[in-house]
Design a protein around this nucleic acid. Structure first.
Lengths: 180, 180
DNA sequence: TTGACAGGCTAACAGTGTTAGCATATTATG
DNA sequence: CATAATATGCTAACACTGTTAGCCTGTCAA
């Protein structure tokens, strides 16, 4: 499966999503309003509704892009030499730290799957299952990755905590569960 | 340390927080508006500002309450017989499933610690460190707990996934790291 | 030439948190 | 007892949000 081409989007839609992507990344979710996004494109807010039914649809397109980014990064990580769990953890962490606003948008709250391109969510999560013999342990490892990531970018750990070490310890804990 | 008495709150403030607590639990975050909260109390929205400087302050009081609930539940869990990690995991999961809206409010986004009662965050996290010999592994375990919990209440796992088994596998993975 | 359509616009609505200014009832003080 | 202060409510309004209705213009096909 290849999700790299968003066929269903017109050039103008792609341009809007691209602008929204940059706006979210550089100024955060509070800046991602319909009026601001429109201004960034040199138009007025109501005109956006000629291209997307509502704001959620724009956000869904961003989430789609996030899943694409993560799916590719995870596949790349698995192919590398060394401990696949550590490689996945590093890739996951890097992606989120580089784009914390997008990461939050992707993972916060419930997800309206009907708005996403079908299958992309599963596709992006697929590489996480590779190192493990059963899907349940893979999901537990995913939970660890997400927990570390979101707690880190939300600054929920005590200041000065050795997060590198926590990542290592967690990866080590799950290493006993990898496929022979 | 005993956080059970919110000494700094007037009776009216306690009443408002209590009402907000019930409103959030029963109807979710969208219902927790200043106007709605006021209506629930039989007053108008601006009157709330005689008791709290802004909405964030009300939310901070709710988060305080959440930390209190969790801190007590965790202490209780640790005293029980059996695997302390499994007990903690069960307590954590139960708390979140019973009050998912409060759990999200507590854990979503960054936290303005200046608004919380000093020390309550650390106090509520304390029991998690008990079973482990180093704080880094304890934090990794916390990340696993939070990851599983938030992904579960946000329905991010595939439908039909065996979450009980994922919880078990994750707890098992960390069991090798417990203090001798 | 005409008609459809794509894509912009202004004006407006309901809802949000929040502030200013006013009224009243209780409580403390002279 | 009178008076001042405080607590606690109110209405009106502001700036912001997503969103809709209705209008106008340019492009392209029949």
């Amino acid at each position: 499966m290849d999700f790299s081409e968003p066929e269903l989007q017109s050039p103008r839609q792609q341009q809007i999503v691209e602008t929204a992507f940059r706006l979210l990344a550089s100024e955060g979710p509070d800046a991602l309003t319909m009026r601001r996004l429109a201004a960034e494109l040199g138009i007025k807010a109501p005109s956006l509704y000629k291209h997307f039914p509502d704001k959620q649809a724009v956000e869904a397109a961003l989430i789609d892009r996030g899943f694409l980014i993560w799916g590719n990064a995870a596949r790349h990580a698995i192919e590398q030499a060394g401990d696949p769990l550590a490689n996945l953890a590093n890739a996951y962490r890097s992606m989120a730290v580089e784009g914390p606003h997008l990461y939050r948008l992707m993972t916060e709250g419930t997800l309206d799957r009907a708005r996403l391109t079908p299958g992309i969510e599963d596709w992006s999560a697929e590489p996480l299952g590779a190192p493990f013999s059963d899907p349940e342990t893979a999901r537990a490892f995913w939970a660890f990755l997400h927990g570390m990531t979101i707690l880190e970018i939300d600054c929920r750990f005590p200041p000065g905590a050795d997060l590198d070490r926590s990542w290592k310890q967690g990866v080590a804990a799950f290493s006993a569960s990898v496929r022979a």
